[in-house]
């Protein structure tokens, strides 16, 4: 019988394969907390507003899945390869301000499963702080998940990259549903 952690792991593996499946064959240890930092040429408030908006996060997820929110309770339905059935990850969004855990941070957004109290609980953390040289916002996306570092890193980068694209241009780069390759059934 699979527990919540297995469900999350399966969901994330599916999502990662959906967005960055060819990153590489990496097996073995659990992610130690993959982190990707990007500079976003927009103010912290604008970036925070995007991450608080489930519709925008849904857009950033793209083909990796979808998310619905009811107040601070966010339910993620993440794609799984080879299956039409998404898997669910129920989380609660907690929001904090400047944090000693993240020096210099202005906003800390944390999604985690309140039912999972284990030390190795999975979570998605977005930390925002003013970027150096007035370049906008330093956006840190941290994924702490039961998948290898490289896969978690790819997922974190993809989420952060798409969020930045959405903020900068109003759209997310995609080749779906029109990839350069033929459909498999052609």
């Amino acid at each position: 019988m699979s527990g919540p952690r297995d469900t999350i792991a399966s969901a994330v593996r599916g999502a990662v394969q959906g967005v960055a499946g060819k990153v590489g064959e990496v097996v073995g240890r659990r992610s130690s907390g993959a982190q990707q930092t990007l500079t976003v040429g927009r103010p912290v408030d604008d970036v925070a507003a995007l991450w608080r908006d489930p519709a925008a996060v849904r857009q950033a997820l793209g083909d990796a899945g979808t998310v619905e929110a009811d107040g601070d309770r966010w339910t993620w339905r993440l794609a799984r390869p080879g299956s039409d059935e998404p898997v669910e990850w129920r989380t609660t969004l907690e929001e904090g301000g400047p944090s000693t855990a993240f020096p210099g941070s202005s906003v800390v957004l944390r999604w985690s499963d309140p039912a999972d109290a284990s030390e190795a609980a999975s979570e998605l953390v977005v930390v925002l702080r003013e970027a150096p040289q007035d370049l906008g916002t330093e956006q840190v996306v941290r994924l702490d998940l039961p998948v290898p570092d490289l896969a978690a890193g790819a997922m974190a980068l993809t989420l952060g990259y798409r969020a930045r694209a959405l903020l900068m241009t109003g759209e997310v780069p995609t080749i779906t549903p029109q990839p350069s390759g033929r459909s498999a059934d052609r």
Binding site: V19, A20, K22, V23, T39, G41, L135, G153, A154, M155, L157, T158, Y161, R164, A165, M168, T169, P173, T174, I175
Partner: peptide, 24 residues
């Protein structure tokens, strides 16, 4: 994209937003 730091500084092939497979 014409909007990001690189595009707005004349380096369009280094665009920060137009690669759907950036993680690769």
């Amino acid at each position: 994209c014409g909007e990001c730091w690189y595009c707005s500084r004349g380096m369009p092939s280094l665009c920060d937003t137009t690669n759907p497979n950036a993680a690769l």
